[in-house]
Design a binder for these strands. Structure first.
Lengths: 146, 146
DNA sequence: CGTTGACCTTCCCACCATGTCAAAGTCTAC
DNA sequence: GTAGACTTTGACATGGTGGGAAGGTCAACG
């Protein structure tokens, strides 16, 4: 039985987050000492490590709640787990695509930017125009009309 | 001169966000009518569209503040703009790499998961183990020690 | 026994960018 | 003059995390 600090270092989940997970019902309330200190067993640490690993894989707390339920259910169907995982993969992939789109646009713009002391800049010109994927204009006299 | 609703639809920035950007000092406070309604000029819309476009490219509000300053400064050096953009590209790329790592791990795990009625599941087994990139165990008897 | 320092408790605040809702005031068109 | 669409401010929520304050507890050392 260890205090929250030990549990935190043993599980890789900060004490702050352990309390948070308890408050939102992701984990069952820890046992308390007479003084009110939380105590954690080896099994509790096991659960916390599970959560930590799932978080590292980008699962939301909501997803983790589902995974924990399945984890605890020895009679679960692996299809249920796989469904959560593949849905998560899809969501991650969508996010990746979105970010890659941004990178592609920015790289194109940056390539055309001299990056010197001169003021003309296609990056600002594009933000300025805002109507095309890549407004590769000459980049002159860009700025607010003021 | 238009009201905030018109400004919102004309710029693609919601009325809520326009007020927010004003409250955090990203944009200068709008002119007000006698009744206190905010009024926006074509130039104001121009600025809002600039912000919208930059947000679409994933720039933080903090970055946008810098970009706006440069945008307004006709004597800026394009190198300053490029620096912000390339730093942002790097950050995006790091995020993409991170997400791709998650996807790769999850895909490996999902591939090995039968996805049927049986309870053994390598995905849970991996979360359980938590000590390797891919604990491709047999996936049996996974769950809390309880 | 007393003190010190490391720990724990709860509670509040902040982030970031956005949405929702409510109460109240204003404008416009009929 | 009234209805309906707008505006204003304000509060609260999201998600997951960090920080800090104010106060209680524990263990070690003298």
């Amino acid at each position: 039985m260890m205090n929250i600090g030990k549990a935190a270092s043993a599980s890789g989940v900060s004490a702050k987050m352990i309390r948070y997970y308890e408050s939102i019902g992701l984990i069952t309330p820890a046992q308390r000492s007479d003084a009110g200190y939380r105590h954690y067993s080896a099994d509790d640490i096991h659960v916390l490590r599970f959560i930590r690993r799932a978080r590292d894989l980008g699962f939301s707390v909501h997803d983790i709640a589902g995974l924990l339920t399945l984890w605890r259910d020895q009679g679960r169907a692996s299809a249920d787990v796989k469904r959560i995982a593949t849905a998560h993969i899809t969501a991650l992939q969508r996010k990746i695509d979105e970010l890659q789109g941004m990178v592609a646009t920015l790289q194109t713009l940056a390539e055309h930017c001299h990056g010197d002391q001169r003021p003309d800049c296609p990056i600002l010109a594009d933000l300025d125009a805002a109507d095309g994927a890549c407004g590769c204009s000459d980049g002159m006299s860009v700025g607010p009309r003021s």
